[in-house]
Simulated scan of single mutants.
Amino acid sequence: MTARAAPNAVSVSRFRRRPFPFIALCRLRLLARWHDRYLQRLDLAEIDEHLLRDLGLTPEDVRHECAKSFWQA
């Protein structure tokens, strides 16, 4: 008896693997996004209270946002 694949089995070779540079680019973009978010939160923490009122934010809003980790949106 010979082993045969099921008629509806999908061949692994049908799926193209993504090239390595694509994965590296995605990781680089993610790191850049995290770094940008970190810098934005540092800037937000330094804004004066009267400017926060102009933006419609309270000091509590700023504390809550700045307490988040860099990977949290």
Rank of each mutant, 00 (worst) to 15 (best):
L42V: 03
R27E: 09
L39A: 08
R53H: 08
W71Y: 09
R29W: 07
A24W: 13
V12Y: 04
R37G: 02
N8C: 08
M1F: 03
H35F: 05
S11E: 08
L30M: 11
M1V: 02
H50E: 14
R4T: 11
V10T: 04
W71T: 04
D43A: 15
I23D: 07
C26H: 08
R29P: 08
A5E: 10
L51I: 10
Q40D: 00
R37Q: 05
L52W: 04
L25W: 10
D43G: 09
R41S: 00
A6R: 13
F20K: 14
E60Q: 08
E49Y: 03
L42T: 02
L55E: 02
E60M: 03
Y38W: 09
P21F: 02
I47C: 02
H64F: 14
M1E: 08
K68Q: 10
R63T: 14
I23A: 03
H64N: 10
D61N: 12
D36S: 14
G56R: 05
S11L: 13
L44V: 10
R63E: 10
W71M: 03
A73S: 08
E46I: 00
L25G: 06
W34M: 10
A73H: 04
F20G: 04
E46A: 13
R18M: 09
D61R: 06
H64E: 07
L57F: 12
